[in-house]
Design a binder for these strands. Structure first.
Lengths: 207, 207
DNA sequence: CGCAAAATTTGATCCGCGTCAAGTGCCGAT
DNA sequence: ATCGGCACTTGACGCGGATCAAATTTTGCG
């Protein structure tokens, strides 16, 4: 059923752009492995990073609004994904009530997360934001069966900073602080979380 | 068709809570007139304001994620709304491909706006955020056929501040600055926008 | 393996916004 | 009409993070 509609996985190299802002939304993309960044480019040419796409997550859901993608998505590592053409998707939605609910669920979740993140970011200070970012990443990795305590950041400090509305220096300082406090081990882009609860306490003030 | 499924409008007074976090999502609510604030309560009891609901907008779409609402929505003014029970909604989605697309479109748009807003807020300074807030409000009012230049804020400065991740003093100062520059006229909660383009320039750096 | 370029860390200084503290004006109650 | 309370405005000051600058590590490549 679903499998039959899905085009065989495709592979791309780091730096390759999967979708561009303004391009018609011809298909739904789901990342199989690797990671990507979602961003839009401001008038001044700066990247505004909306978030990072991990395995199992869909790309460009916000394109449903207008039928066109509203941001760019480009691979941060070698990445494989599968692709469901919109025409196929509509046929499937016609037939499968479960898939309808699933699509609404996914969109609802994306919306919920976007809001929650916005709340976190506007309320917290720099370290709180970085802690939250790490905790969130950790949780999403765990959801995919990967280690929540040992992972490698696929994005640069600058990408993290632009995502959190900070400067890369501030992100670096926050990581150094966490390291000094004994909450993390940091070696370049390799992270070991030693005290997840400390990060969660700083990052998550939500009920 | 749609009209038949919609329960007659209901009215509530200011301060009344329409939906509560954790409550099962039994129906889709759409605001007819008046306005409301969406918020969640942090562990410390502070309100985190996710946004404001204007006429024509739906309440609690993020509830699709889990079948339960994830934030509270309470009326800021006398408010009327209509209500589509979830059971009815599913039946309609079964039969109407157009409504399916419309639901996805609405969710996509909510997602797109949440992301865009997050980007704005994390990148801009205090005046940029307030300018963006006013420009956004103005645009949404215009979309409903209301005046984009003359309106009354239904929310307090404190609500605006918590929404933007600022303090109420800073919001007040931003408004005073805009007034001094001749971009706005401000009398208590009544706003006249004199130079929309100035606000847009400060508020919107997106492509 | 060694070099050059890029990414990251660390340090010093400055400024915007949060905080604390007084006013000022608007609105409802009596 | 007057009073009291609350929302808002305005002012003073300190701190966290942006900015500028330089050292250090990592990575990609010949």
């Amino acid at each position: 059923m679903l499998e039959a509609a899905v085009e065989r996985g495709r592979q791309v190299l780091p730096g390759v752009t999967l979708v561009r802002a303004g391009e018609p939304m011809a298909a739904l993309l789901v990342v199989r492995s690797g990671s990507a960044k979602r961003y839009s480019v401001t008038l001044e040419g700066a990247e505004q990073i909306h978030g990072f796409v991990l395995p199992g997550e869909a790309v460009g859901l916000e394109g449903f609004a207008s039928g066109r993608y509203t941001c760019e998505v480009s691979a941060l590592e070698p990445l494989s994904y599968c692709r469901v053409p919109m025409r196929k998707l509509e046929q499937l939605l016609e037939r499968l009530p479960g898939l309808r609910r699933e699509m609404l669920r996914q969109l609802g979740q994306a919306l919920d997360e976007a809001q929650r993140l916005r709340g976190e970011l506007t309320q917290s200070d720099a370290r709180g934001r970085v802690a939250h970012f790490l905790a969130d990443l950790s949780e999403r990795l765990a959801r995919r069966g990967l280690s929540p305590t040992e992972f490698r950041l696929s994005m640069s400090r600058a990408d993290i900073a632009r995502h959190l509305g900070l400067t890369l220096e501030t992100v670096s300082r926050a990581l150094s602080t966490f390291k000094r406090e004994g909450w993390l081990r940091v070696r370049a882009r390799d992270i070991s979380v030693l005290r997840p609860e400390a990060l969660a306490a700083l990052g998550g003030g939500c009920a």
